[in-house]
Every structure is written in structure tokens, then in C-alpha cells.
Design a protein around this nucleic acid. Structure first.
Length: 862
RNA sequence: GCCGACGUGGCGGAAUGGCAGACGCGCUAGACUCAAAAUCUGGUAUCCUCACGGGUGUGUGGGUUCGAGUCCCACCGUCGGUACCA
């Protein structure tokens, strides 16, 4: 841009930084905690939260300010409405991308993180967000992660008591294997290992067999890992969604992810087994126990422990070969090759407990180790997967469910004819002995009762959710507060926290599953005989509880002070945060993990609500001008800094909100930005006139005169609608109403000062810089940010007369004007007398006449 | 496959079951100007008509209703999520 003076329609570049300085100097958006000076206990509280950003090297993109502007408007509005508003911001700064970037550039992640945080903060401040920066948190700050580690220790020292259905201190556990019930425990199960990233990943972080970060292949291998027992809370995580004001789609997503299914566990005896009874059973989980009579074979997962025990000598070789292939397949290959079923016969048979039939036992990788019991009874007639498998390996298929009840057919008749297609729906039992004729629901109940009586099965509820793999083989994360001695682990004492990571110069992955912390030989040695845990926590750890730390971020005694926690999360709702705004991408990761941690803290008495977030809103994605997802490779990325430079922060904020509904996906448009920019200039010119020389002076039209009726009406209608629209998060329509008001005031001469003062206050939450500037020029007291939200006068909004359309058979034919309080018969008479109406109904029979007072009249004629 | 969201002018989008298209963009005419930009004022769904006026219109087809963009059923399309979960 040239250095010569670029003419600006209003001097936003001068007053925007000015007001940002004033807010900072006066600490306008700082709010005190109970017990602190300046705390006003008479005010209600409002906690409005943004999903804090991961401070990447790219800086802010226009997606960030969308949600942030929405919460800022709410926060500023609630403040004007007399609330104590908690609206904080912080940094989710541990994690893979920072470390990858550090490795690439050769800098220490702490240095790059600091630089990125400083840049993000500067950018956020240049948009004029009203955050209480005194409450800033950073997950990589030792004063913060001390408490992340402390919470981990709480998890370690807790177990889930099924009798009370909640987490309790480990001391209440009376069994003999404490390490088997802790909420944080060690596992040796196969995990998702990503060689390129040099770390293991949680199930949630693996997408289509590739890492969510980077898209690298992921393979399964058994490793020693820390797990968190989130599955213990599965039922509560489902049930307690009910009390939350979240989008139904997100609730559904979480329910599906947790994946509750009801069914039965059934034990099949292994035929001709020489093993003790207890070991010669194959237990399966099924949601369709009513189809038990149709089980014609069984399948074990390749990794199932019984495979070695039961396979016959002739099959051993084939089995071993199949297991090797299955194990070496990455998840990606497993998914890609999912089309064709594979498997091998074990040579063994089992006995169907309901009819004594001997059925073959196979292994196949379409049965997963991690779900249910890792074994299934196959009912090919009524399960698509079993159907495909049976067809491929020519196994028998027996129909046991029919669409319609069918009685009187013996087993014999049915066994001879195989069904033509798989029927996986509910229906009525056939060929099932005592179940015949029962509906699927009744048949399930009946068979479960029978199995329970025989002691070979029972009702069971199964969840898809797995325990949370919590350790990573990385440098840039919270070290575990755990030491190992003689193969046994123990937690550090609270006094030893925070446990800082070693200051490693070489923090690169080792290329093996050995974590980089192993390179810090001094650090690793805890004592003569004990060494430290080498894994670090995943990025999700810090974000699981940051909303609690904002409440009391400087507390060195406790993760959050009890009194402050009670105040800011109080209000009688299950969730403490009143409004949480962020992207959908966290539907089942962050939002599920945070709920889990919160419930543990609640059960252990550390927080006072069972849920973290009462109301959740997902802001939509902002696309590039071409309607495509914004990305560097497409070259359609919009940088907020450029928008602020050319149009100002207020225009950026306003445009982000004017684009459309907050939740919608919508494309960016620079001419749209210019549109709201012109609107802001029009508001400016309500107050200021430009001289021939290009100087700004107070507008001559602006006078201390009372508002005429029409002006008062539009201004008060604006106060009403904008307030209601903010409450409903309908910011685009609020802005359109302010445009209507501004257009009306533009043509007013004289222009009543009072009207402008009211409009400026209503504009405050949206375009705070311009509002402050104008407020100071129209004689406002103090800051508009501290002003009260104006009240509207409903009496000014009612019309004396209303225009009503008159329809004939649903089509508008004429319009009439009637008094506001006209009676039904009066309206009817006026309507019938209207010229076009009279003409249309002349000589016709009126079959019906509907009058909707204040809206319309509809006359139905033959 | 399954689950979810959404289909309204040239574009972004408004509409408690009650005048479809608020507001903005774009386009267009006029005012101001020597001229332009900026600004201000007006017009702008579509078809028929010189006009007055009228017909048709919210993805498609049905239905409920005095009245449907809105509610119900079926279908088509776009986007997002998810996938051997027994």
C-alpha cells in the first residue's frame, strides 16, 4: 500500500488501538472472585467459555474469531445486563504439532510455544475481545500442569465402586488386586502405534487406520501403556447428557460413540474337551439371543486366548499362518480388505447349549478382540457378516426369524431349505423349539430366562467405548507423576509436584517405542532403586480441566479454590459453565474426556457439579471465497490481520456475525466485509460530518431534541430485537435490525441525540471500538462497555392502526387498515367492504371467514 | 451401508402455520461533481401486459389445513460424521 494518505471513511485505525489501551488500563473486563476486593455479591454470575486455541505457528485464521466474537458479544451484553461475567482465554500448548514444528526448525518447543502464544495474544487483543487476561492459563506452565499431574494422581488413587456407581478413593476398595481397579492403570494390550509420529495414539485419534494428525499409517502392537478407566462411567456419560442444553446431534454422537447395546452372554461348551470345565467354555456376547437356535458355527478373534488351546493338530499350521497375517495387518489394511471375509477352521467343535448341536469353531479377523468377549456365535441367516462368511465357506444357514409368525413347521422341514437372503431385522421366531411364534422382543426375554435357569448365560449390557489410552512416547507433554521400583509403580507425593520435564537438547523420537525422556539419564533416576515413568500425557490432558483453572488461576494451594468454584459454577444446573462455544470436531474427544474427568472430580468431592458445560453451541465452518475449505494449498485463506488493517476490528467482528447463523457453514466474502464496513461508516456519520478539507466535525443535524414518534419506535424496536436476538445467539438478524435503525436515523434531521445514544449502547457488544468512540462524543458517561443495557418502552411499539391483507380462498386480493383494537365483526365488515373484495365475493356464498387479529383475513367462497 | 444437518432471487441469507425474499452484496437509474471516486435517493424473483393489473414461484411428488418455505409421507441432491461393535 502506498504511503500517501489513504482516505478512510472513518478513522478506525486511530480509535481502535486507543480503546483497546483504555480497556487494558482500566481492566474493564477483569472480574473479581468472591472474597476479593471489588467483588459484587449482589450480581448474578455468567460463565461464558471459548474452546481455547492451540497456538500454532500459522497464527489466527478467520475461523477462530467466529466463535470468539459470539462469546464476546454475549459476555459484553451480560455485563451490561448486570452480571458478573467470567470470560477468560488461555492456551492449549502441549502436544504433537508444537513438537513436530520444533523438530523441523531445530528450536526448543518451549521457545516456539512462547513465540506462538505471544503472537496469538497480540492478534486476539487487536480484535478487541473483552477477556479477563488476569485469568490467562497455559497448559505448559508448571503452575498449571502441576495440577494436571495432581488430577492424574487422584485418578490413580481412585476406583469405580459399582455398588455406589461412583468413583471413590482407593482405600474403600476391599479386594486384593488394587492395581486392577485403579482409574489410571497399566495395560499391555495391543495399541495403535504410529511409526512416523513415534507414538501411540488413542482410538479416537485414529481415523481410517491413519493418524488424525498427519495421516500416517498406524499399526497395532502390544505395549505397556497407561490407560484411564473411562468405560466405568459409560452409563453415566450417556444418562447425564439428558440434563444438558447441547445440540441433539452432539448428544447423539456421544451416545453412539459410547455405543450401549443390550443382549446376552452365552456359554458354549467345547466338544470332547479334556480341559477342566471352566476352561472349556467359549463365552460370546450377542444382541440377538433369540437367534440362538440358528447358530451354525462360532468364530473367535485371531488373538483369542482359547485359539491355542482348542485348535487341532492338523489345523495348527494354518491357524498360525492366519494369525501372523492378521497381526501384521495394519488397521488400514484391515479396513481396506474388509470387503472379502477370511478365516480358518480350528478343527474344534462346540455344543449349542439350547439344542446340543455340535457346531464348528473358526477364527476370523471380522471378529474383534476388543469388543464383547472376542468371540461370537454365528447366525448367518440373520446377520450380514455371518451370512457373507457362511456363503464363502459353505457353512449351513438356518432360518430362525421370519417376518410373520409361522407355526407348525418342525425343525426338520426348515433345515432342508436354506433362506434366499439374510434377514437381520426383528420378526417372529421359527424353528426355535420353545420360542416359536414369539416376537423378537419376547423371544429374547424368554431365552435369557431359560439360559439363566440353566446357568449357561445371562443378560448383559455391552459398550463400544474403550478405555482411554493415556500415554504418549513424546517429549512435549506432562510427565507422569509415577515412579517404578522392582516392576511396581507408585505415585509421587503432592509435595513433589510439579514434575518438570527434563531440559533436553535432543528431544526427537527415538524411532523405537522407547520414549525420548529415556535420553535424560539423570532425570530418569529417581533413587538408587527407582526410575521415573518415561511416557508423557496426551494433548487432551490439559484441556480436560482448563475451564476450572480459569476460575482461580493463581491458586497455589488447590487446583481451584472451593469458594470460587462454587460461585462460578453454581446456579443449580448440572453443568457449571453457562455457555461453551466451539467446533464440532471435539464432539467425542475433548467433550467426552472433559466430562469424564469432571465426574471423577465430582465423585471425589473436588468440584460441586456433575457436569462441566451446561449449554454447548457449535460454530460452523467458514469456507474460502470459492466455497471450498480454507487451506494454504488452495490459496483461499483469509488472514484476520489483513482484514483489520483494511477495514478495522469492528468490521471483522461484525462481518463474522453477519455472514449467517452461527452454527452454519458459510463462505467468506470480501464484499460482504465491505458491506458491514459501510454500515459502520454510516453509524459514524450519524455523529460526525466531514468538512471540505477532510476533517471530521460534529454533525450539525445532531441536536438535543425529543424523538418523534417514528424515530422512537424504530429505536425501541431495535433495543428489543437486538436484546432478544443476542439471547438467542441470532447475531445476523440483530445486526440487520441495527442497519434498519441506522438507515432511519440517517434521514432524520434534526437527529435526536437520545436516539443515537441508545443505538450506540446497543451496538456496543458488536462493534465496541466505534461504540466507545461515539459514546464519548455524544456525551455518554464513562465507558459504553460499563454502561447499562437500555430498556425499551413497549408502549412505543404498539401501532394504533394495522394494515391487514384480505385473502379470498387463500390469495391476497386487497388490504385494509383497521384500528388496533377493532373487534372481529368490525374487521369482517371492513374487509367485506373493501372494493376488490366486494367485487370478488359478489353473488357468492361465503363458506367460511377467518380473522386472525392483527395478521390477516381469509374469506372462503364457493 | 448407517447416522445427522441442510436444499428459498445472480450471491450471503430473513420469515411464532398467516402479505415469501427483511438486511447485506451485486446490478441499475437519478442527485452531487468539470469529471471520477466516495456519499445520498430510488429500483431490482420470474412470466404475460404499453400500462392498470394478473399468472407462477421456497429441490421433486403426494398429504393435512381456510391457509404450508414452515407440519406429515415418499423420493432426489449437497455437506458433515461413522463404519465388520456381534
Amino acid at each position: 500500500m502506498s504511503t500517501e494518505q489513504k482516505r478512510r471513511p472513518f478513522p478506525f485505525h486511530e480509535f481502535e488501538p486507543k480503546w483497546q489501551r483504555v480497556w487494558d488500563e482500566k481492566q474493564t473486563f477483569h472480574v473479581a472472585n468472591p472474597g476479593e476486593p471489588g467483588f459484587d455479591a449482589s450480581k448474578p454470575k455468567y460463565y461464558v467459555l471459548d474452546m481455547f486455541p492451540y497456538p500454532s505457528g500459522q497464527g489466527l485464521h478467520v475461523g477462530h474469531p467466529e466463535g470468539y466474537t459470539a462469546t464476546d458479544i454475549i459476555g459484553r451484553y451480560k455485563k451490561m445486563r448486570g452480571f458478573n461475567v467470567l470470560h477468560p482465554m488461555g492456551w492449549d500448548a502441549f502436544g504433537l504439532p508444537a513438537e513436530q514444528y520444533a523438530i523441523k526448525t531445530g528450536q526448543h518447543p518451549r521457545a516456539t510455544t512462547e513465540a506462538n502464544v505471544a503472537n496469538f495474544k497480540k492478534q486476539l487483543q487487536s480484535i478487541g475481545f473483552g477477556y479477563d487476561w488476569q485469568r490467562e492459563v497455559n497448559t505448559t506452565d508448571p503452575g498449571y500442569f502441576k495440577w494436571t499431574q495432581w488430577i492424574f494422581v487422584q485418578l490413580y488413587n481412585a476406583w469405580f465402586n459399582p455398588a455406589t456407581n461412583r468413583a471413590e478413593h482407593i482405600s474403600t476398595y476391599k479386594g486384593d488386586d488394587v492395581d486392577n481397579v485403579r482409574l489410571a492403570y497399566v495395560s499391555h494390550a495391543p495399541v495403535n502405534w504410529c511409526p512416523q509420529l513415534g507414538t501411540v495414539l488413542a482410538n479416537e485419534e485414529v481415523v481410517d487406520g491413519k493418524s488424525e494428525v498427519g495421516g500416517f499409517p498406524v499399526e497395532r502392537r502390544p505395549m505397556r501403556q497407561w490407560m484411564l478407566r473411562i468405560t466405568a462411567f459409560a452409563q453415566r456419560l450417556i444418562d447425564e447428557l439428558d440434563g444438558l442444553d447441547w445440540p441433539e446431534s452432539i448428544k447423539l454422537h456421544q451416545r453412539n460413540w459410547i455405543g450401549r447395546s443390550e443382549g446376552a452372554e452365552v456359554s458354549f461348551a467345547i466338544a470332547d474337551s479334556k480341559l477342566p470345565i471352566a476352561e472349556s467354555q467359549i463365552t460370546v456376547f450377542t444382541t440377538r439371543p433369540d437367534t440362538l437356535f440358528g447358530a451354525t458355527y462360532m468364530v473367535l478373534a485371531p488373538e483369542h486366548p482359547l485359539v491355542d488351546v482348542i485348535s487341532t493338530a492338523e489345523q495348527k499350521e494354518a491357524i498360525a499362518a492366519y494369525r501372523t497375517t492378521a497381526a501384521s495387518k495394519s488397521d488400514l489394511e484391515r479396513t481396506e480388505l474388509a470387503k472379502e471375509k477370511t478365516g480358518v477352521f480350528t478343527g474344534a467343535f462346540s455344543i449349542n447349549p439350547v439344542n446340543g448341536e455340535k457346531i464348528p469353531v473358526w477364527i476370523a479377523d471380522y471378529v474383534l478382540t476388543g469388543y464383547g468377549t472376542g468371540a461370537i456365535m454365528a447366525v448367518p441367516a440373520h446377520d450380514e457378516r455371518d451370512w457373507e462368511f457362511a456363503k464363502k465357506f459353505a457353512l449351513p444357514i438356518r432360518e430362525v426369524v421370519a417376518k410373520e409368525p409361522r407355526l407348525g413347521l418342525g425343525n426338520k422341514a426348515a433345515c432342508d431349505t436354506e433362506p434366499m437372503e439374510c434377514f437381520a431385522e426383528e420378526g417372529y421366531a421359527v424353528n426355535s423349539g420353545p420360542l416359536d411364534g414369539l416376537s423378537t422382543a419376547d423371544a429374547k426375554a424368554e431365552i435369557i430366562a431359560r439360559l439363566e435357569a440353566q446357568g449357561v448365560g445371562k443378560r448383559r449390557i455391552q459398550f463400544k467405548l474403550r478405555d482411554w489410552l493415556f500415554s504418549r512416547q513424546r517429549y512435549w507433554g506432562e510427565p507422569f507423576p509415577i515412579v517404578w521400583e522392582n516392576g511396581k509403580h507408585s505415585a509421587l507425593d503432592e509435595s513433589e509436584l510439579p514434575l518438570l520435564p527434563p531440559d533436553l537438547a535432543d528431544f526427537k523420537p527415538t524411532g523405537t517405542p522407547e520414549p525420548p525422556l529415556s535420553k535424560a539419564t539423570d532425570w530418569v533416576r529417581y533413587s538408587e532403586t527407582a526410575t521415573r515413568e518415561l511416557n508423557t500425557m496426551p494433548q487432551w490432558a490439559g484441556s480436560c480441566w482448563y475451564y476450572l483453572r480459569y476460575i482461580d488461576n493463581k491458586n497455589s494451594e488447590r487446583f481451584v479454590g472451593a469458594e470460587a468454584e462454587k460461585y462460578w459454577t453454581g446456579g443449580g444446573k448440572p453443568g457449571g459453565v453457562d455457555l461453551y462455544v466451539g467446533g464440532t470436531e471435539h464432539a467425542v474427544l475433548h467433550l467426552l474426556y472433559a466430562r469424564f474427568w469432571h465426574k471423577v472430580l465430582f465423585d471425589l468431592g473436588h468440584v460441586s457439579t456433575p457436569e462441566p458445560f451446561q449449554k454447548l453451541v457449535n460454530q460452523g465452518l467458514i469456507l474460502g471465497e470459492d466455497g471450498q475449505k480454507m487451506s494454504k494449498s488452495r490459496g483461499n485463506v483469509v488472514n484476520p490481520d489483513d482484514v483489520i488493517r483494511d477495514y478495522g476490528a469492528d468490521a471483522l467482528r461484525l462481518y463474522e456475525m453477519f455472514m449467517g447463523p452461527l452454527e452454519a457453514t458459510k463462505p467468506w466474502s470480501m464484499s460482504g466485509v465491505e458491506g458491514v464496513f459501510r454500515f459502520l461508516a454510516r453509524v459514524w456519520r450519524l455523529v460526525m460530518d466531514e468538512t471540505k478539507e477532510g476533517d471530521w466535525i460534529s454533525s450539525a443535524a445532531l441536536q438535543e431534541v425529543p424523538m418523534d414518534k417514528a424515530t422512537a419506535k424504530v429505536v425501541h424496536a431495535t433495543i428489543k430485537k437486538v436484546g432478544e436476538d443476542i439471547e438467542a445467539l441470532s447475531f445476523n438478524t440483530a445486526i440487520s435490525q441495527m442497519m434498519v435503525c441506522t438507515n432511519a436515523l440517517t434521514s432524520a434531521n434534526p437527529r435526536p441525540l437520545e436516539a443515537v445514544r441508545l443505538l450506540v449502547r446497543v451496538l456496543g457488544p458488536f462493534a465496541p471500538h466505534l461504540a466507545e468512540e461515539l459514546w464519548s462524543r455524544v456525551g455518554g458517561t464513562g465507558l459504553v462497555s460499563d454502561a447499562e443495557w437500555p430498556a425499551y418502552d413497549p408502549a412505543l411499539l404498539v401501532e394504533d392502526e394495522v394494515e391487514m391483507p384480505v385473502q379470498i380462498n387463500g390469495k391476497v386480493r386487497d388490504k385494509i387498515v383497521v384500528k388496533k383494537d377493532a373487534t372481529q365483526p368490525e374487521i369482517e365488515a371492513i374487509a367485506k367492504a373493501a372494493p376488490k373484495v366486494a367485487e370478488a365475493i359478489a353473488g357468492k356464498e361465503i363458506k367460511k371467514l377467518i380473522v386472525v387479529p392483527g395478521r390477516l383475513v381469509n374469506i372462503v367462497v364457493a
